[in-house]
C-alpha cells in the first residue's frame, strides 16, 4: 500500500509540467525514501532525476518499495484537473496497476477523484557517480530561463565559460553571435537574483540549448538554479523543491571535433 498526501498540490502539478516534454513515461519509485523518478530522454542525451522525500507529504506511507509506471502525458492531463491550491493525495495498492488521485479544495467542500491506469515500463537505471565539480554556479532560475530563450534565437548550441570573474553564456550562428556575462553579485536586494560561483578551475563547455530550455521549464518550482560543470562530464542542473526534494537534470556535453 502506498499513500501520500501533499498539502501543496501545486508542487506536483509544476513538477510534472516541468518534465513532461523531456520524458514521455517513467517508473516513479515509491519507497521509504520517498517518491523518486529517474528517466532518460529518448535520444539518451539528457536524464532527469527527481525526489520528493517523505517529509514533503503528510502523511506518507509506503509498506514496500514498488514502481509506478506512469505516462507523463496522462498524469499531466489528470493533474490539470486539480486547482493550484488543492491538496493532492496519491494512493496505490500493492501490486499497483492503478494510481488513485484525490484533489481536495482548501474549503474542504469539494473532492475530486481520478484514477490513472499504470503501465509496465522496462526502464534502464543509470548509476550516477558522486562528482566534485570544477565549477558550480548558483543563479536566478528566471535569469537562466531568459538566457536560454535569448540565445536559442542565434544557435542550437551554447558555450558556458566559468571563471573567477563570472559566468559567460555565448552562442554563434548564421545570423551572428551573442553573449551574456553575469558577474558574481551577492549584494543584491533579493536573494533569488544573486549569482554565486564556486570555482576549482575554469571550465568552458558546450551544450544543446534545446535541452537547457526544457530544463528551464522547472523555473516555476524554484527561484534558484545550480549549474555544476567539469570538463568532459555531463552538466548537472539542479532545482531544489523547498527543503523536501529536488529535480536534477544531467546533460551530455557537445564534443568539439
Amino acid at each position: 500500500m502506498f499513500e501520500a498526501r501533499l498539502s501543496q498540490g501545486a508542487v506536483l502539478k509544476k513538477l510534472i509540467e516541468s518534465i513532461r516534454d523531456l520524458v514521455s513515461e517513467g517508473n516513479f519509485d515509491c519507497s521509504e525514501n520517498g517518491l523518486s523518478l529517474q528517466a532518460m530522454d529518448s535520444s539518451h542525451v539528457a536524464l532527469v532525476a527527481m525526489l520528493l522525500r517523505p517529509d514533503a507529504f503528510d502523511p506518507y506511507r509506503c509498506d514496500r518499495s514498488m514502481p509506478l509506471g506512469i505516462s507523463l502525458k496522462s498524469l499531466s492531463s489528470i493533474l490539470r484537473c486539480a486547482s493550484n491550491d488543492d491538496v493532492i493525495t496519491l494512493r496505490a495498492e500493492d501490486p499497483a496497476d492503478q494510481l488513485s488521485l484525490v484533489f481536495e479544495n482548501p474549503q474542504n467542500d469539494k473532492v475530486s477523484e481520478y484514477v490513472l491506469n499504470l503501465m509496465d515500463i522496462d526502464s534502464e537505471h543509470l548509476g550516477i557517480p558522486e562528482t566534485v565539480y570544477d565549477a558550480v554556479v548558483h543563479m536566478s532560475s528566471s535569469e537562466f530561463q531568459r538566457i536560454c530563450r535569448d540565445l536559442q534565437q542565434l544557435s542550437d548550441s551554447v558555450s558556458i565559460d566559468v571563471s573567477k570573474e563570472g559566468v559567460r553564456f555565448s552562442a554563434a550562428g548564421e545570423v551572428g553571435s551573442g553573449s551574456i556575462a553575469l558577474r558574481q553579485n551577492t549584494n543584491v536586494d533579493s536573494g533569488d537574483e544573486a549569482t554565486v560561483i564556486e570555482l576549482q578551475q575554469q571550465v568552458n563547455l558546450t551544450f544543446s540549448i534545446k535541452y537547457l530550455s526544457m530544463f528551464a521549464k522547472t523555473t516555476p518550482l524554484c527561484g534558484r538554479v545550480t549549474l555544476c560543470m567539469s570538463s568532459d562530464v555531463p552538466l548537472l542542473v539542479e532545482y531544489k523543491i523547498d527543503e523536501v526534494g529536488y529535480v536534477r537534470y544531467y546533460l551530455a556535453p557537445k564534443i568539439e571535433e
Binding site: 539518451h44 542525451v45 543509470l126 548509476g127 548550441s157 555531463p234 544531467y250 551530455a252 557537445k254
Partner: peptide
C-alpha cells in the same frame, strides 16, 4: 562543429 555526446558514455547501467 560539435557532436552531441550521449549519457550512456558517462553513466553505467545498474
Amino acid at each position: 562543429t560539435a557532436t552531441q555526446g550521449r549519457l550512456d558514455s558517462f553513466f553505467k547501467s545498474t
